[in-house]
């Protein structure tokens, strides 16, 4: 599956660490897995943590390092959410693959090749509960010849019996220094000039998610060429510029409903995502000094409700207007609740 031209390959793939020891900032996992590489023994694993911290990378790297390119195809099964993963797949595909016996320990071309196969279940938290239940017995029956690697964002969505059968590893969000060093490395490789301001913007907007940071960097490089400023990064990331948030907040402070309504209309016409606006509005309000705690609580409560409604697919304009209306009421200390509710 070679890409048409080298440059079309996403940088995320291009700079994915190939070896376990290159995985940044996750010392515990790396220590355990390096041990695995030496001894060849390996428990079932469960990797969880926020996106972009290296879970999939680690799982793929260990599989490659254990088996090498030759045996990889026959020893590793990789499944993720786009492959149909209902209970049927668990019963047939996974079980069949798990049941196949493999040869004994024999080193090949310098790879350890331990006598088991690996099944990587990426995005395991989107598996149904039934499918997870069906896996329990399979895991135990074939534990001699098969190891499971579960990868997920939310450990709470993995049923307890599965989680208790695995060694659990939490992947921490990356710190700013590690992210910066990785970004600067890529910039150097790709011949991109990124100033200090751009670098700090990039680490703020990507919030510890290295994949997102690299994607933004590549998008900006594609659109604006090899010299990237912090403004370019903001425009590709879909972040709402600070002035826009500021002006909406100002309209709320004025207490004039019509003015705020006009501001909301403008905001929608500009095409910014409202969910992003809610996040940034929340940050702005929490950091604001001349708003009392009670007012902040009242606004935050509404922000939460509106966010839930947006996830359900409600209209962006109406939800943002609702938030703005509550914000005005809170800032002007109008009484809570409705005066004329029938």
């Amino acid at each position: 599956m070679a890409p048409i031209i080298q440059s079309t390959q996403p940088w995320v793939e291009k700079y994915r660490p190939k070896q376990v020891k290159d995985v940044a900032h996750q010392e515990e996992v790396v220590r355990v897995l390096t041990n695995t590489l030496e001894t060849g023994s390996c428990p079932h694993m469960l990797f969880y943590g926020p996106p972009g911290t290296g879970k999939t990378t680690t799982a793929l790297a260990i599989a490659h390092q254990l088996f090498g390119p030759e045996l990889y195809k026959s020893r590793v099964l990789e499944l993720n959410a786009s492959d149909d993963r209902g209970i049927n797949v668990v019963r047939t595909k996974i079980k069949d693959f798990a049941a196949v016996a493999v040869g004994t320990n024999q080193k090949k071309n310098g790879y350890p090749c331990p006598p088991y196969k690996i099944i990587v279940l990426d995005e395991a938290d989107s598996m149904t509960e039934d499918a997870q239940n069906a896996l329990r017995r399979t895991m135990e029956t074939y534990s001699k010849v098969t190891r499971f690697f579960f990868i997920c964002n939310y450990i709470s969505r993995i049923i307890e019996p599965l989680a208790s059968r695995c060694a659990k590893f939490r992947f921490k969000p990356l710190t700013e220094e590690i992210m910066s060093s990785r970004i600067l490395y890529i910039c150097k490789e790709e011949g991109i000039y990124l100033d200090a301001e751009g670098l700090s913007t990039l680490s703020t907007i990507s919030q510890g998610d290295l994949r997102r940071a690299i994607t933004y960097l590549q998008s900006a490089a594609r659109l604006f060429g090899s010299s990237i400023s912090s403004k370019d990064l903001i425009s590709v990331s879909g972040i709402v510029p600070a002035e826009v948030v500021e002006s909406l907040l100002k309209a709320c402070k004025s207490g004039n409903f019509d003015l705020a309504n006009k501001e909301v209309n403008n905001f929608i016409a500009e095409g910014y995502p409202v969910s992003q606006m809610l996040t940034q509005l929340f940050e702005a309000i929490v950091e604001e000094n001349d708003i009392s705690d009670e007012q902040k609580a009242r606004i935050s409560k509404k922000l939460g409700e509106a966010d839930k409604c947006l996830v359900d697919g409600a209209d962006e304009y109406l939800q943002l207007l609702g938030v703005v209306s509550i914000t005005i009421q809170a800032l002007c200390n109008m009484p809570e609740g409705f005066a004329y509710e029938g």
Binding site: L318, G322, F338
Partner: peptide, 10 residues
């Protein structure tokens, strides 16, 4: 009344 009505619309 505007606040109340826009709440109900949403």
């Amino acid at each position: 009344l505007k606040h109340e009505i826009c709440h109900w619309a949403a």
